[in-house]
């Protein structure tokens, strides 16, 4: 029983991070029909920029309260990632909006590897220990079940951000413009929506969420390096597809579900395969789920859109 609850908690924590990243994928996909392959690497940039900021602050003002330090680092990471999202859209994707269908995707893959390479140049190949500014001393709410304050913070902060995003999209003027653009670019622009600005805004918001997710991800695992964005990026994409790509609620649901499946899967895979496979195969769950969803329900759990319009 304790293991069960423990797996559930672990799954929920990592699932909230996936959900945050998945939102970025799904927003961009909803509006452009583009899989922004580099989204996972924005997360990596966020984590490493925050790390750099924290190191800097520790050197400059060692007496500063850890929470203030974290807030500043987060802010810097968010700003940098927003700029990055804006630049990517402006320099690469915008020019390819009417290109043949493979071109934007290939470019996105190129951008992803370029970001990794640049990160490798700046931060090297090593794994960096991530400063634990929020306590990682586990609490024991139930005997044998451990939860760290970092994990609690992650879940709460993710939930808050997701609610904020839903409000932004559903209740504000720019949100309405986003929905209109997603529905139909041409009509939206005829109605006076500056679709270019809306698309840029979408990238920027997605990048900001990725920055936060990056800091969470690195804090949770305690390490960061140039290639850290790849796997969570892929998994978040899977989550977005699982929930129904283009659908915000779906991305959240998909993220949490994927987190749980992974957590339970890793816990029980050894029993299920009679010891043949162990938890080092954890990463294949996402791919298997992705394959299954795309084969049997390509619209995802909450998606309505037909994936291939004639």
């Amino acid at each position: 029983m304790e293991t069960l609850i423990q797996q559930f908690i672990n799954g929920l924590v990592i699932g909230s991070v996936y959900a945050l990243i998945a939102l970025g994928y799904t927003m961009v996909y909803g509006i452009l029909g583009l899989i922004n392959f580099a989204h996972g690497d924005v997360l990596m940039v966020g984590a490493l920029v925050a790390l750099q900021t924290m190191m800097f602050l520790m050197g400059m003002a060692p007496g500063m309260s850890p929470l203030v330090m974290l807030a500043i680092a987060l802010l810097v990471a968010i700003v940098v990632c927003m700029l990055l999202g804006f630049t990517m859209e402006r320099l690469a994707y915008r020019r390819l909006r009417n290109a043949p269908r493979l071109a934007p995707l290939i470019t996105a893959i190129g951008v992803s590897f370029l970001l990794q390479t640049i990160a490798m140049i700046i931060w090297g190949r090593n794994y960096h220990t991530y400063p634990q500014l929020i306590s990682t001393t586990p609490l024991q709410p139930i005997e044998g079940v451990f939860v760290t304050p970092v994990q609690i913070t992650i879940v709460i902060a993710s939930a808050a951000l997701m609610i904020g995003l839903l409000l932004l999209v559903n209740r504000t003027k720019i949100g309405r413009a986003m929905r209109a653009t997603a529905e139909n670019h041409r009509v939206a622009s005829l109605m006076g929506v500056d679709t270019n600005a809306v698309i840029a805004f979408t990238f920027v918001v997605g990048a900001a969420l990725a920055a936060v997710a990056g800091v969470m991800f690195a804090s949770n695992y305690g390490i960061a390096h140039y290639g850290m964005g790849f796997m969570p990026g892929l998994k978040a994409f899977t989550a977005a597809v699982l929930g129904g790509i283009g659908n915000l609620g779906g991305a959240m649901l998909g993220g949490v579900m994927l987190g749980l499946v992974e957590s339970f899967g890793a816990g029980y895979i050894e029993h299920l395969t009679f010891g043949f496979l162990n938890s080092s195969y954890q990463d294949i769950f996402a791919f298997i789920i992705l394959g299954l969803v795309l084969i049997f329900r390509p619209t995802g759990l909450l998606g309505e859109r037909v994936s291939d319009r004639a």
Binding site: L102, I109, N278, S280, Y281, I284, G291, L294, P298, S307
Partner: peptide, 26 residues
């Protein structure tokens, strides 16, 4: 992956490549 659109296909094939690598490693 037969019924998948181009961009989904890309990700699934990527996943396939990674699965093969994970098996080679483990």
């Amino acid at each position: 992956v037969l019924r998948l659109r181009g961009d989904y296909l890309a990700i699934v094939t990527l996943g396939f490549g990674e699965i093969v690598r994970i098996f080679m490693l483990n």
